[in-house]
Design a protein around this nucleic acid. Sequence first.
DNA 1: GTCTATAGAAAGATAGAC
DNA 2: GTCTATCTTTCTATAGAC
Lengths: 219, 219
Amino acid sequence: MARVSFREQVLQVREDAILASVNRLLADKGFDLMTVDEVVADVGIAKASLYKHFTSKEELAAAAMVRVLERALAELARLREQPGPPTGPQARPVDQLMAVARWTMQVQLAGQMPSLPAQNSSLRAALIAHKVYMDRLMQLSDELGEWIEAAQAAGQLRPDLPPEVVLYTLFARACDPVLGLLKAGGQYSDEEIIEILLLSCFGGLATPEPAPEAKRKVG
Amino acid sequence: MARVSFREQVLQVREDAILASVNRLLADKGFDLMTVDEVVADVGIAKASLYKHFTSKEELAAAAMVRVLERALAELARLREQPGPPTGPQARPVDQLMAVARWTMQVQLAGQMPSLPAQNSSLRAALIAHKVYMDRLMQLSDELGEWIEAAQAAGQLRPDLPPEVVLYTLFARACDPVLGLLKAGGQYSDEEIIEILLLSCFGGLATPEPAPEAKRKVG
DNA sequence: GTCTATAGAAAGATAGAC
DNA sequence: GTCTATCTTTCTATAGAC
């Protein structure tokens, strides 16, 4: 059993190396432009060997996405245990959501956020049929959904935005092209980019409206 | 001269038909997944004929993008001439920006916003080298930039957001995947989707902070 | 300029030896 | 399981007749 476990461990390490390359290539070029030949050249193995581990290019991308989703779930767990900054006011639910957005942007700026085509493609069908991927995606959505509802119940998110919209927006900001444009501009540090985009995402582009009581609340 | 003009007109019509198909296919599948065979099948011409009009697939996409950019420029001109709604308060610069965002979202929901890969691709280099495309893009950026600066000077946009960021964000919202997700959900009408996303984009996800003097900054 | 037919290249996937 | 070598398909682009 020890020998088998060792062998499995070696395989696991190799698969991790493969997925690391896939992850980086997906972040750099996207699924359609990433070729299996590039992957195997990057890992340093033969193409046939890769196909012993993953049965198709779609499966490869799905595995990379699962890895990212699991990292995101781990980050959520981390944020739950360490809720607030040591100094400053107590962490609110909306701060947790901002921390998640901050993390996704950091991952993207580090070139480690695989970007899948939002459009119709062979990949979409493969992902929807991929049980593990869908499971992790649902779990992440559920956990974020709870935070969103908590934040909304606490009056920290706009009550007129459906929770759905907040969730989708958080996912979308994880692969927002604005990050890449600002980074290409070279005018801001990664930290500045993240703080600017957090402000524009949660605070909005426009100047906040006058105080709520001047707005004559409808509810 | 009349005959030549007529012939040219026929060609123009055909090229317009081609670009309309390209536009729709780009919106539906994106550049990488769109094939020239699909385009010619959709238009009803032979592939070789298409290559008499456009020298490459990249040129085809660039022409479609130019068409969209020119429509956007026309929309800006229209908004300039007809600045405000007949009823209600006077139109402000930020209202113009919101009207532009609304227009781009309408185009996207109508399936007429070609989406190009933000990533590295053969298309990027072709577009950067495409003089007409770059010209229209610069013109649109300049015109929007003026509105952004006017809105910021009037205190209607967050002063701590660089104008650059506002511009990029407007471009990015034109191909925001959130629109497609909400439309796929089927729970909201196109108009509702647009108003919700305008609110989240300009107003932000979070509840507006209390008036600045009541904020008692922590720092 | 439009067509049919095809060249040429790239990429996903596999056969078979070791 | 890993390799080399190859198959098969798909797609961009073009040749050549009309």
